[in-house]
Amino acid sequence: MGELGIVVPAVLAGLTTGAIYALVALGLTLIYGVLHIINFAHGSLLMLALYAAFFLKTLWGIDPYAAVFVLGPAFFALGYVLQRGVIWPASHGQDSMILMVTLGLSIVIDNLALALWTSSTRTVDLPYAFAVIDLKLALIPLPRAVAFVAALAAAGLLWLFLARTDLGRAIRAVAKERLGAQLVGIDVRHVYAMCFGLGTACVAVAACLLLPTFYVTPQVGHAFVLVAFTTVVLGGMGSMEGALIGGLVLGVVETLCGLFLGESLGQIGIFAIFILILLFRPTGLFGGKSA
């Protein structure tokens, strides 16, 4: 065993962390890939969804896994309205301004949460939170395994959606050539809003899967947002399989860095990858098209 006995469980733990990163990044890559903008509010929306799942559980006893079916549609609607009602009009359709608008949104959402729910850390108690699956080489917490499978499923569903449905084709058309898409009769504003809505729904799903093994504070989104950007850039903008593999890779990198460099330096590996990828291969590992 020796070295291997430590490394194998670390890699498995990293894969399950990476699955969560991938889930958060799936929504972002959809928004980033089509709208070509950085959505700084992504982490804040994740935080909001975590609070929503938390209150559904504590106030009405709805299990986080069941909450997926409530929060998914609810956050889809929220995202649609945010894009159509706030981001589009306030940014005048300019990329550099969308960045600032989403930053403003994230400031408002984060501090609203702070004002409403204080900065205390909250967790939920679930009977299955500490259940584990024995893989001989390592023990995997059950909720982590569920999140892992769900990340694979979500990536697959989104890929199918983009490849096979009319709306998916419209989204890809707008991502490639906005003006051309408009000329053939695609309602670009609607597609943008649908995209933002779908991305926000992904965040809600990620939040429901994350809550059983995680906590909620108004700042919780910050921990994920830069990792999500790294995942998206690593995987290639707008690529679902890229986001999935990118997320898994980053999860493993983080745990291995944490193992060998010490806990506090764990995320250094992620940012080092981020900077190197941005500098040397900004189209990502799976991104065929140039940025």
Partner: peptide, 22 residues
């Protein structure tokens, strides 16, 4: 001194400025 209140207003000001006085 409500925590976060000043930042909420600053964020709103940012969005409103971008919308109406870019």
């Amino acid at each position: 001194p409500q925590p976060g209140l000043n930042l909420i207003l600053q964020g709103l000001l940012l969005i409103l400025m971008l919308r109406f006085l870019p």
